[in-house]
């Protein structure tokens, strides 16, 4: 039938130049993933400290900012490394362009990292009074321990825009229709809660059973809603021709299809059921396993969602 003959009804490109491949690759995936952990542990940590007494969460005042500090530095390192002119990063501070979410995000993330660094130093030396007794910085941190409680609420509030600004960068990426702002904002938020809960699971060994149950609850809720959003986007992005054409790269099978579904099963479905199970049994090992799976799966899902829109020919 002639109407089904592509060459009769559709144009075919017969000569063109090679198109750019993946521009933002695994380094940007790692950047987003590490930022989710770095901000998420602060958000989930604040939730736990609101729900439970400090005594039920031994060590959280220094482990939480320390985990955040480490992952924020991974995030900043790979942000820098991904630049083709890394030394010119300084231009973001010398010549800021405020309509750019990259600029706003860089400023907020730098401030957030500064606050978390102060909290980590105070928290660590406060929890370890015998460490570096003669060090001026350690003693200063111990003297100023009240500062921790003043900074903490600011850091919690700041953690929200810091975790979300990448979604605005994606929104400003006008060429990539798969990245719709409301969906990406929520995905970033769920990712932060998921990664934050998973990150704190590894230091929750001595915490109360109730605190661990809350961690499992946050992990279960965040994996569930994030999974639902991915499914909605994956199966029902009918309204945008470009989004549909983009999703064809995963629908059609191949490596991105495998990575996506492996990510969904490893990072969302399995941790959800394990987390639900551990809420009743308080099985620390299983909860740690669920946290590890969630972190691996989250990376895979983010990686696919970052890369497939870049494969679409734009012109």
């Amino acid at each position: 039938m002639v109407e089904h003959t592509v060459s009769a009804t559709q144009a075919i490109v017969t000569l063109d130049v090679a198109l750019p491949g993946i521009i933002w690759g695994w380094m940007i995936t790692l950047n987003m993933w590490a930022k989710s952990v770095g901000t998420g542990v602060v958000l989930v940590g604040a939730f736990l400290l609101w729900r439970h007494k400090k005594e039920e969460l031994p060590g959280i005042r220094w482990t939480m900012p320390l985990i955040s500090f480490v992952f924020l530095n991974i995030f900043l390192l790979f942000t820098l490394t991904d630049l083709h002119q890394p030394y010119r990063m300084i231009n973001i501070f010398l010549h800021p362009h405020w309509t750019s979410a990259i600029t706003v995000g860089a400023w907020m993330a730098s401030l957030f990292t500064l606050l978390i660094s102060i909290m980590a130093v105070i928290g660590f030396f406060e929890a370890h009074p015998n460490v570096r007794k003669n060090c001026k910085l350690a003693n200063l941190a111990r003297e100023k321990s009240a500062l921790y409680d003043k900074i903490f609420p600011v850091a919690v509030v700041l953690a929200v825009p810091v975790t979300l600004y990448t979604a605005i960068i994606m929104a400003e990426s006008a060429a990539r229709e798969l990245w719709q702002t409301p969906a990406e904002l929520m995905q970033m938020m769920w990712a932060a809660l998921m990664a934050g809960a998973a990150g704190l699971v590894f230091v929750s060994d001595k915490w109360s059973e109730g605190a661990r149950r809350d961690l499992a609850l946050v992990l279960a809720i965040s994996t569930f809603f994030s999974f639902m959003m991915y499914m909605g986007e994956y199966f029902f992005s009918f309204k945008s021709a470009e989004a549909e054409a983009t999703l064809a790269y995963v629908h059609a099978g191949g490596e991105y299809n495998t990575e996506f579904w492996a990510g969904m099963l490893i990072g969302f479905v399995a941790p959800f059921f394990i987390a639900i199970g551990t809420m009743k049994s308080d099985n620390k090992t299983l909860l740690r396993f669920a946290a590890l799976l969630a972190l691996i799966g989250l990376f895979m899902a983010k990686d696919v969602w970052l890369k497939i829109p870049q494969m679409l020919p734009l012109s």
């Binding site: 991904d82 010119r88 010549h95 990426s173 006008a174 060429a175």
Partner: peptide
């Protein structure tokens, strides 16, 4: 001279007109 090479513009341009 000012460009930092973040490739944000390449992600934003709907016409694929920018290259590194």
């Amino acid at each position: 001279e000012r460009c930092i090479g973040c490739a944000g513009c390449m992600m934003a341009c709907p016409y694929g007109a920018i290259y590194m």
